[in-house]
Design a protein around this nucleic acid. Structure first.
Lengths: 293, 293
DNA sequence: GGGGCGATGTGAGTTAACGCACAGAGAGAA
DNA sequence: TTCTCTCTGTGCGTTAACTCACATCGCCCC
């Protein structure tokens, strides 16, 4: 049973009773309807209609087709309604991904967004690997670093995340603060575990801090911040994260060179949907407080 | 949601995951598949798939379509199986119509046919009006008289029904038998109620028997036979019917001029079906005993 | 009974859908 | 990295499907 359009044609003929009437409803010429019926009967090897001057009356097979196609028509109508409607409503699932270091900013916003749309389920993905928008793994991604140049991805600037060096009050009381790069040899540092990290502050540390002075390394920014707080050494933390923790002292003011630009990335096919647009607007609104100035 | 073929295309893309694979399954070029998807998405206003180099992955709307179309595909497959299969089996309903005077012959055959096919329901229609095959009122009709020339009807000769004049034994004992037409003026007759009857014996009676001698008239042949049997007069009855009744005496031997040819008529659209063919063969086999010689 | 109407059917012309060929882009392997 | 394979995407020519027009046939109403 291929050629579903022919089934639809036969369905309308059976429903209405005449070829002409069905042709009008279908918006095609009645000759087309006749050819569809003939082709379908030929393929099935059974007459679906008895032809007479007043129209077509379905045989048993035609009546059977009428019932099945009626159900199909209903199903498709409902489907079309759901699909068209869903394009304009915020429901189902919203999948957001970002680097782990942004969870303290995003999670409250996600929770508030879910609260605003009760029909919505939020999934927040963080992980080592990059979740790929083109495979439908997420609707929205928050990416850091250089402008993502993936084709089929819509990229918007989000905000600039400032970083600088922090130390715990206990560390300062014990070791003091370095006044310039020349003092780094006498201090201990907390840094990134990944030597290939492309974060600007991480590369700065690789170039300006002797490797042997980096005595605590972790791939997780939260672990690094905890290490700094525990007095393990001096290390980079985002200004916003540091502000939420008691007991951290800025070693130097934030430098623009250390800042990491953040980008909002969506897949082209999903970017126009109401759900994604609603979340992007919601996120931008709530992130105004995070902007540097 | 028009263009069910596009839904089928999208269904296969969602099911298989690639345009090329779906195109192969559908037996069309992959460009056609792409155009179908694009047209469907355009019409719905929602992306059904996320496109990437490895194939198409369904969005939520695409997944929804996949579910619905999967069910539709199943339904259509079952429908095709039923329709194709039903063409080769004898089941459902068999509707046979004839003039009322043939019921004593047809009913036993219909009962035996039903007994041979337990899945079958038989309907036997008799009535004043002609049941019309082209409106699907019956599968098979047994017609008398001239060759039916309805277009779209398949006509086969059935057998020749012989008629002649009968009288009851009581009538003969009381009035004797006429030896020729000249004696008709002294006899009483049972005849047809309808002066426009086209039956050859009825017209013969109109022409050869004085109207005032026809003292019992009925439209029903069974009533006429009963009247003859009750001694009301001389009248025509089919030879086969008369043979089943005790107490009837042939006034004259059957004449070919009085015989009524019977025809088996089916609608063109139903004639080829196994069910109709099975019944026609069954009926012909059982009617061999009725043939004159 | 006859004219009009609406239905089915068929042949000819036209449009739109399809197949073909090639370009481009990732993904995986050497 | 580079090569290769596969899949997507698009312009162009062709074919098949569709529209159009006309013929035909029944039915209904006048």
């Amino acid at each position: 049973m291929e050629h579903w359009d022919e089934v639809r044609t036969a369905y309308n003929v059976a429903r209405i009773g005449t070829v002409s009437g069905a042709a009008e409803v279908l918006g095609v010429h009645h000759a087309t309807v006749i050819r569809h019926i003939d082709a379908l009967e030929e393929r099935l090897g059974v007459k679906l209609f008895q032809r007479h001057a007043r129209g077509y009356t379905p045989t048993e097979a035609g009546s059977d087709l009428l019932r099945v196609a009626q159900a199909t028509d209903d199903q498709f109508s409902q489907l079309a309604g759901r699909i068209k409607g869903r394009g304009n409503e915020v429901s189902g699932e919203l999948v957001v991904t970002s680097i782990g270091g942004l969870s303290h900013l995003l999670v409250p916003v996600l929770a508030a967004f879910q609260d605003a749309y009760p029909g919505l389920t939020v999934r927040y993905l963080t992980g080592d690997r990059l979740f790929r928008l083109e495979y439908g793994e997420a609707h929205v991604a928050v990416r850091a670093g250089a402008v993502p140049d993936q084709p089929d991805n819509v990229v918007q600037p989000f905000f600039r995340q400032d970083f600088t060096l922090y130390a715990s009050e206990a560390y300062v009381a014990r070791h003091g603060l370095p006044e310039s790069c020349k003092d780094f040899g006498t201090h201990r540092f907390v840094g990134a575990d990944d030597p290939k990290s492309r974060a600007p502050f991480a590369r700065w540390m690789q170039e300006n801090v002797p490797a042997e002075n980096i005595i605590f390394k972790s791939g997780d920014v939260h672990a690094q911040r905890r290490a700094i707080l525990s007095g393990a050494g001096i290390g980079f933390t985002s200004v916003l994260q540091a502000a939420e923790v008691e007991g951290l002292v800025q070693v130097v003011p934030p430098k623009p060179d250390w800042a990491a630009p953040l980008w909002l990335v969506t897949h082209m096919d999903l970017h126009r949907t109401t759900k994604v647009q609603a979340f992007l607007a919601f996120l931008k609104e709530h992130s105004k407080a995070w902007q540097p100035e």
